[in-house]
């Protein structure tokens, strides 16, 4: 067990970096000014649009506002990332 603990110390992420990473993510959604209610509405609207064309896993659908590297400007910009698992493509 002692061996495990020593191993953990080397593996542990510094709390300063944890704070920085948490803040960077949080501030993106803070700045985008999107409440959980609005996010839920966006999610439902996306489901309704895509439903017309394919069968998707509504439970597994996940959307979030995060950062992405901009292609035109230098630095990162806020982006809406949606992960939508498809069950079957309709014809």
């Amino acid at each position: 067990m002692v061996y495990m603990n020593i191993f953990d110390i080397f593996k542990k992420k510094n709390s300063g970096n944890v704070a920085k990473d948490r803040l960077k993510l949080l501030l993106v959604s803070d700045r985008a000014n999107c409440s959980p209610e609005i996010m839920e509405q966006i999610k439902n609207d996306i489901i309704n649009v895509i439903k017309k064309y394919m069968e998707i896993d509504c439970e597994g659908l996940d959307i979030q506002i995060t950062q992405t590297e901009s292609e035109t400007e230098n630095g990162s910009v806020p982006a809406l990332i949606a992960n939508i698992p498809i069950k079957e493509v309709r014809h």
């Binding site: 510094n14 709390s15 300063g16 970096n17 704070a19 920085k20 803040l23 960077k24 501030l27």
Partner: peptide
Amino acid sequence: DMVKKGDMMTMEDVQDI
């Protein structure tokens, strides 16, 4: 002392955020 241990954000970190 805490910055050196990695347990406090540096002024560069804060500015970056």
